[in-house]
Simulated assay, not measured.
Amino acid sequence: MRPLVAHIDLDALRHNYQLACQCAPQSRSAAVIKADGYGHGALACARALAGETPAFAVACLEEAVVLREGGITTPIILLEGIFSADELALVDHHQLWMAVHSAWQVEALLAFSPREPIPVWVKVDSGMHRLGFAPENVSAVWQQLREAPQATSLHLMSHFATADATDSRYFQQQMALLQMLATTLNAPLCLANSPATLAWPVAHGAWNRPGIMLYGSNPLESATPVTDQLRPVMTLRSEIIALRDVEAGEPVGYGGRWQAPRRSRIAVVAGGYGDGYDRHAQDGTPVLVNGQRCPLVGKVSMDMFTVDVSEVPDASIGSEVVLWGRAANGAVLSVDEVASSCDTISYTLLTGVLPRVPRRYHGAFV
Rank of each mutant, 00 (worst) to 15 (best):
28 R>K: 07
334 S>Y: 04
65 V>F: 12
315 A>D: 07
210 P>D: 10
131 L>C: 06
309 V>K: 14
305 F>L: 13
137 N>H: 15
52 E>K: 02
341 S>Y: 14
104 W>E: 10
332 V>R: 07
284 G>K: 12
64 A>P: 08
357 V>H: 01
346 S>K: 00
143 Q>M: 05
365 F>E: 08
153 S>D: 15
223 A>L: 09
361 Y>I: 08
343 D>C: 06
22 Q>D: 10
316 S>I: 02
34 K>D: 04
364 A>Q: 12
267 A>D: 09
207 W>A: 05
174 Q>N: 11
127 G>L: 13
285 T>S: 12
37 G>I: 09
131 L>W: 12
172 Q>W: 05
308 D>P: 05
198 L>P: 12
204 H>T: 15
184 T>Y: 01
11 D>T: 08
152 T>A: 12
364 A>C: 09
280 H>F: 10
132 G>I: 08
61 L>V: 13
288 L>I: 03
223 A>I: 02
255 G>S: 04
22 Q>K: 15
68 R>E: 05
151 A>T: 13
227 T>V: 04
216 G>A: 09
177 L>F: 14
309 V>E: 05
42 A>T: 04
68 R>D: 11
114 P>D: 11
268 V>A: 15
35 A>I: 13
18 Q>G: 11
31 A>Q: 10
130 R>N: 02
334 S>T: 01
130 R>F: 08
136 E>W: 02
201 P>L: 12
332 V>I: 15
249 G>Q: 12
220 L>C: 11
71 G>Q: 01
23 C>Y: 14
172 Q>R: 15
225 P>H: 15
298 G>F: 09
205 G>L: 09
124 V>M: 03
293 R>T: 13
269 V>N: 07
337 E>R: 10
326 R>W: 04
329 N>C: 05
14 R>L: 08
299 K>C: 13
276 G>Y: 03
344 T>A: 03
50 A>P: 00
172 Q>H: 11
237 R>W: 00
267 A>F: 01
53 T>S: 11
200 W>E: 13
356 R>I: 03
255 G>W: 00
362 H>R: 11
161 A>E: 11
32 V>R: 00
53 T>D: 01
271 G>Y: 14
226 V>H: 09
145 L>S: 07
338 V>K: 01
207 W>R: 00
319 S>N: 05
287 V>K: 02
150 Q>D: 09
200 W>C: 08
70 G>N: 07
338 V>N: 02
227 T>I: 11
208 N>I: 06
277 Y>K: 04
142 W>P: 04
282 Q>P: 00
260 A>K: 06
